[in-house]
Design a protein around this nucleic acid. Structure first.
Lengths: 112, 112
DNA sequence: GATGCAAGTAACCTTAAGGATACCAGGATG
DNA sequence: CATCCTGGTATCCTTAAGGTTACTTGCATC
């Protein structure tokens, strides 16, 4: 895919697809927390400040639908459940890095 | 700024700053329309499908506050007003390109 | 046998983004 | 002089994201 060959309508559509997945309040904090090793539901709730069970539950489902997180059930007694970032999740790194850079520079730019 | 040296809290903060500017429904369509040469208010209203005057007005103010758009008043009779993307706006290109690429690939990934 | 924990679900509420519609002032145009 | 165009405001309404609080089931633990 060569970006320069896309029409502006196509560009907007692709950007909106990205925003649809990434633009909520909790997507990135949850992903980062899982990535940092918090793989159990209760661990995540404790490590992501102020998130509620309802919202965490919904975020995890959405992230699973988007193939960024894998949910695994273990037949322990009682059953335990683990959330892990998928290999595909690594594809987000260039994008997230750009977001970090731009956000960092933008705050400086605006304060001038 | 070296990304790897940032704490996860700092990374999240910078990403949220970026999302705060970019994550609405109309920011990018409006920027792209201005960039494509629609520089008058009414031209923009016509070239961005379904945007209302109220929302366009607000978007333009926000984009101006974020230094991405420059508003110029000309003492013609009657006064005419032009909106143009700022030089700083070009700093968005790497980010937007990453969003285009990821959105494009994500749709393919999800449909597998 | 009461209490606690994991992994959630259910029901209801608040707030902010965005949409719909109407309107306005000042000049231009027929 | 009536209507049109530009560049917007003002008011009210809808919807969706997220927040609050309570509850549940099945096991384990004291």
């Amino acid at each position: 895919m060569e970006i320069e060959e896309l029409s502006t309508e196509q560009k907007i559509k692709h950007v909106q697809d990205t925003l649809f997945v990434m633009s909520g309040k909790w997507e990135l904090p949850v992903l980062i927390a899982i990535n940092a090793g918090n793989i159990r539901f209760k661990d995540l709730q404790r490590s992501v400040p102020n998130i509620t069970t309802k919202v965490l539950s919904k975020e995890l489902k959405d992230l699973e639908i988007n193939k960024l997180v894998v949910r695994t059930i273990y037949n322990t007694s009682p059953v335990s459940i683990e959330y892990r970032v998928s290999p595909y999740c690594k594809s987000l790194k260039p994008l997230v890095d750009e977001m970090i850079k731009w956000g960092y520079n933008h705050r400086i730019e605006i304060s001038k």
